[in-house]
């Protein structure tokens, strides 16, 4: 997959070349932005505790409007932090622990 010109820069004067791709950086930004939010962190903690929950379980526990809960869950889902699973007429949300530990590793390395 070759990157579009103009969206990628290469820094050449370091020990090795460093390539920065705007589209790639945006992806990582969206992931960190998804988890860097107080309410969404509460959702993560809640799912950590209960493993599997429906939107209803979540918005009742957190005393939110359903639309607000759905919006924030969608952001977490796009970042890959939560995944959904259909069971009959219910849709259950659960944490992707592997994804979370990947994010944790990214944060540790970036902040090093």
């Amino acid at each position: 997959m070759r990157k579009q010109k103009g969206e990628t820069i290469v820094l050449k004067k370091g020990k090795q070349e460093i390539q920065l791709d705007y589209a790639e950086l945006r992806k990582a930004v969206l992931v960190l932005r998804a988890i860097n939010h107080k309410l969404r962190q509460r959702m993560i903690d809640l799912l950590e505790e209960y493993e599997k929950m429906t939107v209803t379980d979540i918005y009742i526990k957190l005393r939110l409007e359903q639309s607000v809960a759905s919006q924030h869950l969608a952001i977490l889902r796009r970042a890959g932090v939560v995944s959904t699973e259909r069971d009959g007429k219910f849709i259950y949300y659960g944490l992707d622990k592997d994804r979370l530990s990947q994010i944790s590793k990214l944060v540790e390395e970036l902040a090093a």
Binding site: V29, V107, L110
Partner: peptide, 16 residues
């Protein structure tokens, strides 16, 4: 539990 240190999260968000 996967713990993400908040301070480090701020630092890495700033960098990104």
């Amino acid at each position: 539990k996967v713990n993400i240190n908040d301070e480090k999260l701020q630092v890495s968000s700033e960098i990104l």
